[in-house]
Write a protein that binds this DNA or RNA. Structure first.
Length: 648
DNA sequence: TCAGAGTGCGCC
DNA sequence: AAACGGCGCACGCTGA
């Protein structure tokens, strides 16, 4: 396979590619080799008993044709299918070769951008920017590609990929265009042309398949509209479509990493790691010597010898070493280590060592590899239906799990002359639990602007709210966040110990748990209600805004999944509505305002300093307005900060 | 040798 | 029965 053959690698392959690419993090971008493997797998799928299609098409190779054929459309059509074929998958280095426009009762217009004078593309530009509904499959890709080619693809949109994802949220299903065509239309999209021998200029086969991909979008749109409507998921789909442009732009924007600061931080972490490693090995070697009845000084030679034998990242080897020290563990998972952490410093050191190792390998070393050679920024790949709950996911790299300590986040800086503006929803999931359960004490606390963590603490410790000290409030917070989704006593103890260094006995934890549900009877009742649904064999869950998650016939939800989804799914909708609102009021109008991160309940912008105040106000308004109708009468609280970096 | 399940850890 | 939920990534280990 040569590069020419991959010219027609289309964007649904991106979706498929990503799901096969979880391990490939060393290379941030798509290699031809990987794509080739993917295309081979792709070709193997032969749908049974379905029709092939062969759409009529009209190849446009000059400006006159373009004008004659497209100009009449602009005032007469309301909707069209859109697809692009590109020279690659990276919008920063690849080019759009073909744009296919599918209009009802017309042949598919296949526009060869390579053949047409760049200054004479106005008819296409106008059509893409018109008020028509644009139907596409994974439009984020077309939006990015067209944007970097100088075309603005304006809303409204209908994305068949997202539509299908919304319908099947919770299931692990293929969502390629080929799959959708087969399942919803019983049409076979023959992809074999993609792997056949392409010539330098485009063959009629290539053109035919490019046309088919676009043609199939129109009937797919009809089918999906029907399905979404029947499932009452039209509004959910609209929310997704409304934030598409902002998401595409966010992926194009990328995020800046200050490499100098980053390297300094890496050295610091490496030193800490080395110190810990030395301490740990010294301890372990002592145990080793005892067990071998050896005596002697801890020489560097011995240390080296042991470090060769004991890999601190190997659970198996660490268990052996611990056993020799007389620490009775069978595995090194937290469940077994945490209870011993108080008694053995080595165990605390090991936990710390593992954490440092992650910090170094995944972040210090891993992240810089994702700095794009062209943009010199980190270009994460955002998937707005990436999580079964409706939440975003982000890959290559994952920008939603960056360590939150200031020294790390400080390295994510605004470019010169700019500032970072971030908006955070305050306790949004707790507020949503209050809303979902209708719990009176919770709702009233929020309505009166009270501090919910303090309220919980006052009940746990039988003290008036005014007398609650910071330590007690901290525990109230842990209890609040921990117990709303039905956390058990064991896990609760583990969490408080691991994350907060608070070691509770089982009975203490159990008492806190009981008191929590005594105070928040509405939450307890909500749990009971969901439990009954669960026992009745529920295989579907709806969020407060009607977002749906389903389970297949072979998998049953756990109780806690059912408890969690309504809250997490609603949260996802809220932040997406905020982004959509921000896009229509600000991002699309002031291009210097860049959306760079969305982290579940946080929105981060990079903005020219001069605009900071205005943008901060607008961001706050959008965030509040997006949540207000869903949370009412519970108030929404959004914290907005203007900073030089993500950290400070 | 290598894909894949398992474990652990980062975030909200 | 299951025993907070949702992710992505790096690592050592396993089995073919």
């Amino acid at each position: 396979m040569n590069n020419q053959q991959i010219v027609l690698a289309t964007k649904e392959i991106v979706c498929k590619y990503r799901s096969h690419n979880k391990k490939d993090s060393a290379d941030a971008f798509y290699s031809w080799k990987e794509t080739e493997i993917l295309l081979k797998r792709y070709r193997l799928k032969q749908p049974a008993r379905v029709k092939s299609i062969s759409a009529k098409y009209h190849l446009i190779t000059n400006a006159e044709q373009l004008r004659e054929l497209l100009d009449p459309l602009i005032d007469t059509i309301e909707t069209f299918g859109l697809d692009t074929e590109t020279t690659g998958l990276d919008p920063h280095t690849s080019k759009v070769r073909l744009v296919q426009i599918a209009v009802p009762k017309h042949p598919v217009f296949v526009i060869d951008l390579a053949a047409i004078d760049r200054t004479k593309l106005t008819p296409l530009k106008q059509l893409l920017a018109s008020h028509c509904l644009k139907i596409g499959h994974n439009l984020k890709f077309d939006l990015m590609m067209l944007k970097s080619a100088g075309f603005n693809l304006e809303p409204p949109y209908f994305d068949t990929y997202l539509g299908y994802k919304i319908l099947t949220a919770g299931l692990k299903r293929s969502s390629t265009l080929e799959t959708l065509a087969r399942k919803l239309l019983r049409v076979k999209l023959n992809k074999s042309a993609q792997t056949s021998d392409f010539s330098y200029s485009l063959s009629s086969e290539q053109l035919q398949y490019a046309a088919n991909d676009a043609a199939v979008l129109l009937p797919l749109h009809r089918q999906l509209t029907r399905h979404l409507s029947k499932a009452k998921l039209t509004a959910t789909a609209q929310t997704e479509f409304d934030c598409l442009r902002a998401v595409a732009q966010m992926e194009l924007n990328g995020v800046r990493l200050d490499l100098d600061k980053w390297q300094l931080l890496k050295q610091e972490l490496r030193q800490q790691q080395a110190r810990l490693e030395e301490k740990l090995l010294a301890h372990l070697i002592a145990g080793d010597l005892r067990s071998r009845s050896l005596r002697g000084r801890l020489t560097n030679t011995l240390l080296t010898e042991l470090s060769i034998r004991v890999n601190l990242s190997s659970p198996k080897q660490v268990v052996t070493a611990f056993n020799q020290l007389g620490i009775d563990v069978r595995s090194t998972n937290v469940r077994e280590l945490i209870p011993l952490a108080q008694d053995y410093p080595v165990i605390r050191w090991l936990l710390e060592y593992r954490s440092l190792t992650t910090r170094i390998n995944t972040f210090s070393v891993g992240l810089p590899q994702f700095i794009h050679p062209t943009t010199e920024r980190i270009q994460g790949h955002w998937w707005q239906m990436g999580a079964r709950s409706g939440r975003f996911s982000c890959r290559e790299p994952n920008l939603t799990n960056i360590p939150r300590d200031i020294s790390t986040r400080q390295c994510f800086t605004a470019s010169p002359g700019n500032v970072i503006i971030k908006a955070d929803y305050s306790q949004i999931e707790l507020r949503l639990m209050a809303q979902a359960s209708g719990d009176r004490p919770m709702i009233e606390a929020y309505r009166h602007g009270e501090d919910l963590h303090r309220l919980t603490a006052s009940f746990l410790f039988d003290k008036p709210i005014e007398n609650i000290i910071d330590e007690e409030r901290k525990l109230g917070k842990i209890v609040n966040f921990g117990l709303i989704y039905g956390m058990g006593v064991a896990k609760f103890c583990l969490t408080t110990a691991k994350k907060h260094n608070i070691y509770l006995s089982k009975s203490e934890a159990s008492q806190f748990r009981q008191k929590f549900f005594l105070l928040y009877k509405g939450v307890a009742a909500y749990h009971q209600r969901i439990r009954r649904e669960w026992q009745a064999g529920a295989r579907v869950s709806y969020s407060l805004d009607g977002r749906r998650r389903v389970w297949s016939k072979r998998t049953k939800p756990t109780l806690n999944e059912l408890l969690n989804h309504p809250i997490q799914g609603t949260n996802a909708t809220i932040i997406k509505r905020a982004i959509a609102l921000l896009d229509s009021t600000l991002l699309s109008k002031v291009p210097q305002v860049k959306l760079i991160l969305v982290v579940h309940d946080e929105i981060v912008l990079e903005v020219p300093r001069k605009l900071a105040d205005r943008v901060a106000r607008c961001l706050s308004d959008c965030a509040v307005e997006a949540a207000r109708p869903i949370l009412a009468p519970i108030p929404v609280e959004v914290e907005v900060k203007v900073l030089d970096s993500w950290g400070i």
